Computed example of a mutant assay.
Amino acid sequence: MFVRTVYVTGDPAKIDTAVRALNTEGRELLEERPGYLGAGVFTDHELGKLLAVSWWASEQARGNSDTVMRQHRQALLEPFAGTLAVENMESVVHRSLRVPRMGGGLRVSRVEFDPADAALFEETFRSTVLPRLETLPGLARAALLVDRERGLGRVGTLFVDRASMAASRAAQAAARHEAAAKAGVRVVSLEEFEVVHADVHLG
Score class of each variant (00 low, 15 high):
R4M: 04
N64L: 15
P34N: 10
V93N: 10
L130C: 13
R176L: 07
H177M: 13
H72C: 14
A179C: 10
R107F: 00
K182S: 07
R4P: 00
V68I: 12
S65C: 11
L145V: 01
D199P: 08
E28N: 12
T67W: 13
E25V: 14
M1F: 12
V41S: 10
F193C: 02
E134H: 15
E31P: 07
V41N: 09
V41E: 00
H201M: 05
H201L: 07
E59M: 14
V8C: 08
V108Q: 01
A180P: 02
K182E: 00
N64D: 11
K182T: 04
L30I: 07
R110M: 09
T124W: 02
M89G: 03
E31H: 07
T135Y: 08
D11Y: 09
E123I: 07
G40S: 03
R4G: 04
A118W: 12
A18F: 03
S96I: 12
R4C: 05
A170R: 15
E112R: 15
S58Y: 06
A170G: 14
T128Q: 12
K182F: 02
L47M: 11
R95I: 02
G138L: 01
S54G: 03
F80W: 03
S58F: 01
E59V: 10
R101S: 02
L47S: 14
V53G: 02
A175Y: 01
D44F: 07
A170P: 12
L50A: 07
A75F: 09
M89T: 05
W56G: 14
F121D: 01
D11N: 15
A81D: 01
D66F: 11
A39M: 14
R20Y: 05
W55P: 03
L37N: 04
V86T: 09
V92H: 11
G82V: 14
E191Y: 05
T128W: 03
R176M: 11
H72P: 09
R176P: 04
G82C: 09
D199Q: 15
S164Q: 10
D114Y: 08
R154L: 07
V146S: 03
E28W: 06
F193H: 02
E59R: 15
